[in-house]
Design a protein around this nucleic acid. Structure first.
Length: 120
DNA sequence: ACTTTGACTTCGG
DNA sequence: TCCGAAGCCAAAG
């Protein structure tokens, strides 16, 4: 379990029944903005997560085939309503309390502090 | 150290 | 609204 996977898993678990979040929002809340793809990776690998509550940008389901149908079914079963092919995020998106924890809390000393985006 | 791999996102047409 | 391309970045091999 790498730190990023742990952080993302924990963040996903914070989304309550009847609410949803997005890959990008989870990534940001977990302290890893721009790592939306990793959220997908975690959802696939880690078992026991409320995977159905995570949607793509705009509240659209980004899965294909039967999984997509199942996701929609599960969400509607817990009270999340769809407007066409998407969920109204204004109404159902979960707001994380502490907006965003910042980065990985270093376990040891604080030796390597590299700029987040060296390249700008 | 390098390449491939995504349950992604944004932008143009 | 629906693609395609480009950008993204840690993990895995």
């Amino acid at each position: 379990m790498t730190p990023i996977i742990a952080a993302i898993s924990a963040t996903i678990r914070q989304v309550p029944r009847g609410r949803v979040s997005t890959y990008g929002a989870i990534a940001k809340a977990a302290g890893y903005p721009r790592c939306a793809r990793h959220v997908g990776r975690v959802l696939k690998e880690v078992r026991g997560l409320p995977w159905q509550r995570i949607l793509g940008s705009g509240g659209r389901i980004s899965l294909r085939g039967e999984l997509a149908m199942e996701q929609r079914f599960l969400l509607e079963a817990e009270g999340v309503r769809f407007k066409g092919r998407r969920v109204d995020l204004q109404e159902f998106e979960h707001r994380f309390a502490t907006a965003s924890r910042q980065r990985v809390p270093d376990a040891k000393g604080v030796p390597k502090a590299k700029p987040l985006r060296p390249k700008l």
